[in-house]
Protein backbone atom coordinates (compact mmCIF):
# COMPACT_ATOMS: atom_id res chain seq x y z
CA UNK A 1 0.00 0.00 0.00
CA UNK A 2 2.86 2.33 0.81
CA UNK A 3 4.16 2.62 -2.77
CA UNK A 4 0.65 3.34 -4.04
CA UNK A 5 0.20 6.13 -1.48
CA UNK A 6 3.61 7.43 -2.39
CA UNK A 7 2.71 7.52 -6.05
CA UNK A 8 -0.66 9.16 -5.36
CA UNK A 9 0.96 11.88 -3.26
CA UNK A 10 3.63 12.29 -5.85
CA UNK A 11 1.15 12.71 -8.69
CA UNK A 12 -1.24 14.96 -6.72
CA UNK A 13 1.50 17.39 -5.97
CA UNK A 14 3.31 16.97 -9.25
CA UNK A 15 2.85 20.54 -10.54
CA UNK A 16 4.33 21.98 -7.38
CA UNK A 17 7.24 19.59 -7.14
CA UNK A 18 10.37 18.96 -9.10
CA UNK A 19 10.74 15.94 -11.34
CA UNK A 20 10.41 12.68 -9.35
CA UNK A 21 13.60 10.94 -8.42
CA UNK A 22 14.83 7.83 -10.20
CA UNK A 23 14.00 5.76 -7.13
CA UNK A 24 10.44 7.09 -7.09
CA UNK A 25 9.99 6.25 -10.77
CA UNK A 26 11.32 2.77 -10.16
CA UNK A 27 9.00 2.25 -7.19
CA UNK A 28 6.09 3.36 -9.34
CA UNK A 29 7.13 0.96 -12.12
CA UNK A 30 7.29 -1.97 -9.70
CA UNK A 31 3.92 -1.02 -8.26
CA UNK A 32 2.25 -0.81 -11.68
CA UNK A 33 3.88 -3.76 -13.41
CA UNK A 34 4.06 -6.02 -10.38
CA UNK A 35 1.31 -5.20 -7.88
CA UNK A 36 1.85 -6.76 -4.51
CA UNK A 37 -0.75 -9.48 -4.99
CA UNK A 38 -2.86 -10.35 -8.01
CA UNK A 39 -4.42 -13.09 -10.03
CA UNK A 40 -4.43 -12.57 -13.80
CA UNK A 41 -5.03 -14.24 -17.09
CA UNK A 42 -2.46 -13.35 -19.69
CA UNK A 43 -1.79 -14.30 -23.28
CA UNK A 44 1.65 -14.34 -24.82
CA UNK A 45 2.12 -14.47 -28.58
CA UNK A 46 5.56 -15.17 -29.94
CA UNK A 47 6.09 -13.94 -33.53
CA UNK A 48 8.95 -15.68 -35.31
CA UNK A 49 11.27 -15.01 -38.18
CA UNK A 50 9.26 -17.02 -40.70
CA UNK A 51 6.13 -14.97 -40.02
CA UNK A 52 4.43 -17.68 -37.99
CA UNK A 53 3.41 -17.23 -34.38
CA UNK A 54 2.73 -19.28 -31.27
CA UNK A 55 0.20 -18.24 -28.63
CA UNK A 56 0.16 -19.21 -24.97
CA UNK A 57 -2.53 -18.54 -22.38
CA UNK A 58 -1.66 -18.65 -18.72
CA UNK A 59 -3.04 -17.98 -15.28
CA UNK A 60 -0.69 -15.96 -13.11
CA UNK A 61 -0.73 -15.61 -9.34
CA UNK A 62 1.49 -13.26 -7.37
CA UNK A 63 1.93 -12.69 -3.67
CA UNK A 64 4.30 -10.23 -2.04
CA UNK A 65 7.37 -9.04 -3.84
CA UNK A 66 8.87 -12.32 -4.82
CA UNK A 67 6.30 -15.09 -5.15
CA UNK A 68 4.88 -15.96 -8.55
CA UNK A 69 3.08 -18.97 -9.91
CA UNK A 70 2.03 -19.60 -13.50
CA UNK A 71 -0.25 -22.29 -14.88
CA UNK A 72 -0.12 -22.75 -18.65
CA UNK A 73 -3.61 -23.27 -20.04
CA UNK A 74 -2.99 -23.25 -23.80
CA UNK A 75 -1.85 -24.65 -26.19
CA UNK A 76 -2.51 -28.32 -25.46
CA UNK A 77 1.17 -29.22 -25.87
CA UNK A 78 2.12 -27.20 -22.77
CA UNK A 79 -1.09 -27.49 -20.78
CA UNK A 80 -0.27 -28.60 -17.26
CA UNK A 81 3.15 -26.98 -17.21
CA UNK A 82 3.70 -24.69 -14.26
CA UNK A 83 6.33 -22.20 -13.18
CA UNK A 84 7.03 -21.10 -9.66
CA UNK A 85 9.20 -18.37 -8.31
CA UNK A 86 9.90 -18.02 -4.60
CA UNK A 87 12.61 -15.48 -3.84
CA UNK A 88 15.57 -16.19 -6.10
CA UNK A 89 14.37 -19.73 -6.76
CA UNK A 90 12.67 -20.69 -10.01
CA UNK A 91 11.14 -24.08 -10.80
CA UNK A 92 9.50 -25.48 -13.88
CA UNK A 93 6.99 -28.29 -13.41
CA UNK A 94 6.62 -30.59 -16.42
CA UNK A 95 3.55 -32.83 -16.28
CA UNK A 96 5.29 -35.50 -18.35
CA UNK A 97 8.20 -35.57 -15.91
CA UNK A 98 5.77 -35.44 -12.96
CA UNK A 99 8.21 -33.30 -11.03
CA UNK A 100 9.73 -29.85 -10.83
CA UNK A 101 13.23 -28.90 -11.95
CA UNK A 102 15.13 -25.76 -11.10
CA UNK A 103 15.65 -23.27 -13.92
CA UNK A 104 17.64 -20.06 -14.27
CA UNK A 105 16.31 -16.50 -14.39
CA UNK A 106 17.86 -16.02 -17.81
CA UNK A 107 15.94 -18.83 -19.50
CA UNK A 108 13.61 -17.69 -22.22
CA UNK A 109 9.97 -17.71 -21.22
CA UNK A 110 8.36 -20.50 -23.28
CA UNK A 111 10.82 -19.91 -26.09
CA UNK A 112 9.57 -16.36 -26.71
CA UNK A 113 11.41 -13.06 -26.39
CA UNK A 114 10.55 -12.46 -22.77
CA UNK A 115 12.79 -14.18 -20.32
CA UNK A 116 11.63 -15.71 -17.07
CA UNK A 117 12.66 -12.69 -15.05
CA UNK A 118 10.61 -10.33 -17.28
CA UNK A 119 7.47 -12.18 -16.33
CA UNK A 120 8.29 -13.72 -12.96
CA UNK A 121 10.41 -11.05 -11.35
CA UNK A 122 9.19 -7.48 -11.48
CA UNK A 123 11.20 -6.00 -8.66
CA UNK A 124 13.49 -3.52 -10.34
CA UNK A 125 14.02 -1.51 -7.17
CA UNK A 126 15.65 -4.51 -5.54
CA UNK A 127 17.60 -5.67 -8.59
CA UNK A 128 18.88 -2.42 -10.10
CA UNK A 129 20.37 0.90 -9.12
CA UNK A 130 18.65 3.77 -10.90
CA UNK A 131 19.62 7.24 -12.07
CA UNK A 132 17.84 9.85 -14.14
CA UNK A 133 19.10 10.67 -17.62
CA UNK A 134 18.01 13.10 -20.35
CA UNK A 135 14.98 11.56 -22.03
CA UNK A 136 15.23 13.08 -25.49
CA UNK A 137 11.52 12.41 -25.97
CA UNK A 138 8.70 14.81 -25.11
CA UNK A 139 6.60 14.22 -22.00
CA UNK A 140 8.73 11.35 -20.83
CA UNK A 141 11.37 10.76 -18.19
CA UNK A 142 14.24 8.34 -18.62
CA UNK A 143 15.78 6.25 -15.88
CA UNK A 144 18.90 4.21 -16.44
CA UNK A 145 19.15 1.04 -14.39
CA UNK A 146 22.33 -0.84 -13.57
CA UNK A 147 22.24 -4.39 -12.19
CA UNK A 148 23.17 -4.76 -8.55
CA UNK A 149 24.35 -8.35 -9.12
CA UNK A 150 25.23 -10.76 -11.93
CA UNK A 151 22.13 -12.86 -11.29
CA UNK A 152 19.74 -10.36 -12.91
CA UNK A 153 18.38 -11.02 -16.38
CA UNK A 154 19.96 -7.85 -17.84
CA UNK A 155 23.09 -5.92 -17.10
CA UNK A 156 21.42 -2.55 -17.65
CA UNK A 157 18.05 -1.13 -18.68
CA UNK A 158 16.83 2.18 -20.07
CA UNK A 159 13.25 2.86 -19.09
CA UNK A 160 11.09 5.67 -20.41
CA UNK A 161 7.96 6.62 -18.43
CA UNK A 162 5.19 9.14 -19.03
CA UNK A 163 5.74 12.29 -17.00
CA UNK A 164 2.02 12.60 -16.37
CA UNK A 165 1.49 9.36 -14.47
CA UNK A 166 4.90 7.65 -14.55
CA UNK A 167 3.50 4.68 -16.49
CA UNK A 168 6.10 2.94 -18.65
CA UNK A 169 6.29 3.73 -22.36
CA UNK A 170 9.40 2.01 -23.61
CA UNK A 171 12.32 -0.05 -22.37
CA UNK A 172 15.70 -1.04 -23.75
CA UNK A 173 17.51 -4.02 -22.24
CA UNK A 174 21.28 -4.56 -22.46
CA UNK A 175 23.60 -7.50 -21.88
CA UNK A 176 26.94 -7.37 -20.10
CA UNK A 177 28.72 -6.60 -23.40
CA UNK A 178 26.69 -3.41 -23.66
CA UNK A 179 24.74 -4.68 -26.65
CA UNK A 180 21.00 -4.07 -26.71
CA UNK A 181 19.33 -7.48 -26.46
CA UNK A 182 15.69 -6.55 -26.36
CA UNK A 183 13.39 -3.54 -26.45
CA UNK A 184 9.86 -3.19 -25.15
CA UNK A 185 6.88 -1.01 -25.99
CA UNK A 186 4.13 -0.56 -23.40
CA UNK A 187 0.64 0.34 -24.64
CA UNK A 188 -3.10 -0.23 -24.23
CA UNK A 189 -3.36 1.54 -20.87
CA UNK A 190 -6.43 0.14 -19.11
CA UNK A 191 -8.06 0.26 -15.70
CA UNK A 192 -7.86 -3.49 -15.05
CA UNK A 193 -8.96 -3.27 -11.45
CA UNK A 194 -10.65 -0.47 -9.55
CA UNK A 195 -8.23 2.47 -9.49
CA UNK A 196 -5.47 0.40 -11.05
CA UNK A 197 -4.29 1.46 -14.49
CA UNK A 198 -1.46 -0.23 -16.32
CA UNK A 199 -0.32 -0.96 -19.85
CA UNK A 200 -2.21 -4.14 -20.71
CA UNK A 201 0.03 -4.83 -23.69
CA UNK A 202 3.79 -5.20 -23.77
CA UNK A 203 5.59 -5.93 -27.03
CA UNK A 204 9.11 -7.25 -26.50
CA UNK A 205 11.33 -7.12 -29.59
CA UNK A 206 14.39 -9.26 -30.03
CA UNK A 207 17.11 -6.80 -31.06
CA UNK A 208 19.48 -9.60 -32.03
CA UNK A 209 16.98 -11.15 -34.44
CA UNK A 210 14.92 -8.23 -35.64
CA UNK A 211 12.11 -10.29 -37.11
CA UNK A 212 11.27 -11.74 -33.71
CA UNK A 213 8.98 -10.23 -31.13
CA UNK A 214 6.61 -11.36 -28.42
CA UNK A 215 3.46 -9.73 -27.11
CA UNK A 216 2.14 -10.08 -23.60
CA UNK A 217 -1.50 -9.09 -23.21
CA UNK A 218 -3.12 -8.90 -19.79
CA UNK A 219 -6.69 -10.06 -20.34
CA UNK A 220 -7.94 -9.67 -16.81
CA UNK A 221 -6.45 -8.95 -13.46
CA UNK A 222 -7.77 -9.08 -9.92
CA UNK A 223 -5.80 -7.31 -7.21
CA UNK A 224 -8.11 -8.36 -4.42
CA UNK A 225 -6.78 -11.84 -3.78
CA UNK A 226 -5.76 -13.67 -0.64
CA UNK A 227 -3.51 -16.62 -1.37
CA UNK A 228 -2.17 -19.08 1.20
CA UNK A 229 1.63 -19.31 1.14
CA UNK A 230 1.37 -23.01 0.27
CA UNK A 231 0.44 -22.05 -3.31
CA UNK A 232 4.03 -20.87 -3.71
CA UNK A 233 5.76 -24.02 -2.57
CA UNK A 234 7.45 -26.67 -4.65
CA UNK A 235 5.21 -29.29 -3.03
CA UNK A 236 2.10 -27.65 -4.49
CA UNK A 237 3.29 -27.87 -8.10
CA UNK A 238 1.28 -30.25 -10.22
CA UNK A 239 -1.82 -30.07 -8.03
Amino acid sequence: MAPRLLAACLLASAPALAEPTAEQILARYDEVMGPRSFEAEMAMTAHREDGSSRAYVMRVLKSGTDKFRIWFLEPASVKGQEMLRNGDNLWLYLPNLKRATRIANRDSFQGGDFNNADVLRVNYAADYEAKLAPSGEPDTSLVELKARSASTAYDSIKLWVRKADLLPVRGEYFGSSGQMIRSAEFSDYQELSKGYVRPARVVMRNELVKARKSELQVRKMNLDVEVPPQRFTQADLGR
Binding site: N96, L97, K98, Q230, T233, A235
Partner: peptide
Amino acid sequence: TLQRAGAYMLLVEVPLE
Protein backbone atom coordinates in the same frame (compact mmCIF):
# COMPACT_ATOMS: atom_id res chain seq x y z
CA THR B 1 9.42 -37.53 -19.88
CA LEU B 2 8.15 -40.71 -21.53
CA GLN B 3 7.52 -42.63 -18.32
CA ARG B 4 4.29 -41.37 -16.78
CA ALA B 5 3.23 -44.36 -14.68
CA GLY B 6 3.17 -44.16 -10.90
CA ALA B 7 2.38 -46.36 -7.91
CA TYR B 8 -0.76 -46.97 -5.89
CA MET B 9 -0.69 -45.17 -2.57
CA LEU B 10 -2.28 -43.29 0.23
CA LEU B 11 -0.41 -40.01 0.58
CA VAL B 12 -0.61 -37.39 3.28
CA GLU B 13 1.21 -34.13 2.61
CA VAL B 14 1.84 -31.28 5.02
CA PRO B 15 3.14 -28.32 2.99
CA LEU B 16 4.37 -25.32 4.94
CA GLU B 17 6.09 -22.21 3.58
